[in-house]
């Protein structure tokens, strides 16, 4: 049985949570209302800013026509594939660096340079080498893979040396250490890397679409800008925001599952 004091505490905490949720929604509502009114009363030029009610009707138009959802789907697919490729390839390279400290030392300065290099500058190269659709994957992976390697590798380094000494004392081989300690102990790092990658890969995909593609939200944004259709630009940006929310949602679910399975604290 809980005491009245505790019940009161719980009530107050619950009210706080409600207040936070409510305030979040109000921020959005106030922002949209101000936007609508400002455009409606001529404080700003709707030609330049568009307005929420117009966006809603263009969204309806674009969605029912079918092209908006198709473009969103294409960008979403490119992002998911990009994330998957950089996670797998990045982890594989981080494992290689752990396996061979020689390789790690040899390649270290190159990693530093590649990390600092603005990957967007590689756009034309990807376009010429990979063509207009695959260059988007090239850009997405280029932007996220280096960070993946660095984050996963630093995760490996955080795993205590004595944990590996324990494995060594049983005569464990390197593949056994990898499978039984390194990979399971790195699950929290994989999730953290995944979170960073959702954002970075989206940047890569949109950037890639800006440069070369004939489809996707990045293409719609550029196209909308060129024909001075602010509605199209804004709707596409909103879809992009929705897409990132959905992807974060998936990562969040994955995190909850992993925390239960691998029994770690956030």
């Amino acid at each position: 049985m809980s005491s009245p004091l505790y019940e009161k505490y719980l009530r107050i905490q619950k009210r706080k949570l409600w207040l936070i949720g409510l305030s979040r929604l109000s921020v959005l509502a106030v922002f949209l209302a101000l936007w609508e009114l400002a455009a409606g009363w001529g404080w700003v030029d709707p030609m330049l800013t568009s307005k929420p009610s117009l966006l809603l009707s263009s969204f309806r138009e674009l969605a029912f026509e079918g092209s908006l959802l198709k473009h969103t789907w294409i960008s979403g697919l490119e992002t998911v594939v990009g994330i998957a490729v950089s996670m797998l390839l990045g982890t594989a390279i981080a494992v290689l660096f752990w396996w061979s400290s020689f390789a790690s030392k040899v390649l270290e300065p190159y990693m530093v340079v590649l990390n600092a290099l603005p990957k967007v500058a590689l756009g034309p190269i990807f376009y010429i080498w990979l063509g207009d659709s695959y260059s988007i994957y090239g850009m997405a992976v280029a932007i996220s893979i280096i960070v993946t390697i660095i984050m996963v590798e630093s995760g490996f380094r955080e795993i205590s040396k004595t944990k590996l000494k324990l494995m060594e004392s049983f005569g464990a081989t390197k593949p056994q250490m990898l499978r039984m300690v390194l990979l399971p102990a790195s699950v929290p790092h994989f999730i953290a890397t995944l979170k960073v990658n959702v954002g970075l890969t989206l940047v890569g995909v949109v950037m890639g679409e800006f440069l070369s593609s004939k489809a996707g939200l990045g293409y719609l944004i550029i196209y909308g800008g060129q024909v001075f259709q602010m509605n199209l630009v804004m709707v596409s940006i909103t879809m992009l925001a929705l897409l990132s929310v959905i992807l974060y949602g998936f990562v969040h679910l994955l995190e909850r599952f992993a925390r239960k399975k691998y029994n770690y604290e956030a």
Binding site: S160, K163, L166, P184, Y262, N263
Partner: peptide
């Protein structure tokens, strides 16, 4: 020569695997 299966090691920290 190399780690012998006849030997067991117990370290200062238990290093039980949380997973």
């Amino acid at each position: 020569s190399g780690v012998s299966p006849k030997v067991g090691y117990m370290l200062q920290h238990d290093h039980l695997f949380e997973w």
